[in-house]
């Protein structure tokens, strides 16, 4: 795992003239964005062939800072735009970055259908358990009982397990990392990029500004420490199930390649083209 050195990476993959970024101090999104860039570098993709698509929200500002073909779409619809791009030109490596509300509330329908088709899109969700851009409303991944500006008396919605959702819908590669476990996150994205099909990688992020403050989680350091102390790799749990009790599972959950959608369509073209 030898990545290009840090300064070279910055110059090569970031639009440094777009900095500084808009994220709050302590936000986990910058770290997660960096794992995406490092994974692209490690896999060795040509920048001209990479398209990064996002929806709306804090996470969705990431593509603007990344020096690829980048598309900042409408709220929830990133996967639908990305599907059109991949269909039109299957040679492109299409990466989608979404937030938790973006991907599973307003965009939930597109998530399950992109997964079902197994279209070759690497989807990375920066999950900070809150709507940050609009100031701290609960999302479909806000834990039950937690507080948000629209759950002032505690959240009575049950939270999605995004990885289970994506796997159940048909994603052929599924994993979860965190902003603290950046090397793992990078590795999962690398494998997602290499999977010819729909890959879903959840990156647990942290929002000290809204979610953290509302729920007395402490500063960014404390929130990172929480990930450090409470996440267990699925490989460990598979051997010792008791180690997974009341913990957050991370690691590679599912890796089972199946026929990719645009390849399936190409078979039709090859057979019926006149």
């Amino acid at each position: 795992m030898t990545n290009t050195n840090c300064n070279e990476m910055t110059q090569k993959y970031y639009r440094v003239d777009r900095m500084p970024h808009i994220w709050c101090p302590g936000c986990g999104h910058g770290t997660l964005m960096n794992t995406v860039v490092r994974a692209i570098d490690k896999v060795g993709l040509n920048k001209d062939d990479v398209v990064v698509v996002s929806g709306i929200g804090c996470s969705s500002r990431a593509p603007g800072y990344m020096d690829f073909n980048t598309l900042h779409t409408t709220h929830g619809r990133a996967l639908a735009f990305a599907t059109g791009i991949k269909m039109a030109n299957p040679k492109l490596h299409v990466i989608v970055i979404m937030g938790d509300g973006d991907s599973s509330a307003i965009g939930g329908n597109h998530l399950i259908h992109a997964a079902r088709r197994n279209i070759d899109i690497t989807t990375i969700v920066f999950n900070n358990n809150i709507y940050g851009m609009t100031g701290g409303q609960f999302s479909p991944t806000t834990p039950y009982g937690d507080f948000a500006t629209t759950a002032p008396f505690g959240n009575i919605d049950k939270a999605f397990d995004l990885c289970s959702l994506a796997q159940g819908a048909g994603a052929t590669y599924v994993g979860r990392g965190t902003a603290y476990h950046a090397p793992l996150m990078q590795k999962l994205i690398e494998k997602g990029l290499e999977n010819k099909g729909f890959s879903f990688i959840e990156g647990l992020s942290l929002c000290p500004t809204y979610y953290g403050r509302k729920n007395k989680k402490g500063n960014a350091f404390k929130m990172h420490s929480y990930f450090k102390d409470n996440c267990v790799d699925i490989k460990v749990v598979e051997k010792n199930p008791e180690k997974g009790e009341n913990k957050i599972l991370i690691g590679e959950f599912y890796n089972s390649p199946k026929t990719e959608y645009t390849e399936g369509y190409q078979v039709i073209i090859d057979k019926f083209q006149k």
């Binding site: 398209v51 698509v53 598309l71 779409t73 409408t74 929830g76 619809r77 639908a80 735009f81 990305a82 599907t83 059109g84 791009i85 991949k86 269909m87 039109a88 030109n89 492109l92 329908n109 597109h110 259908h113």
Partner: peptide
């Protein structure tokens, strides 16, 4: 999966 997605997809297709 719906018309929101259809419109989004043709924008993506056109960009590609």
């Amino acid at each position: 999966e719906d018309e929101l997605a259809s419109m989004a997809a043709i924008i993506g297709g056109s960009l590609a």
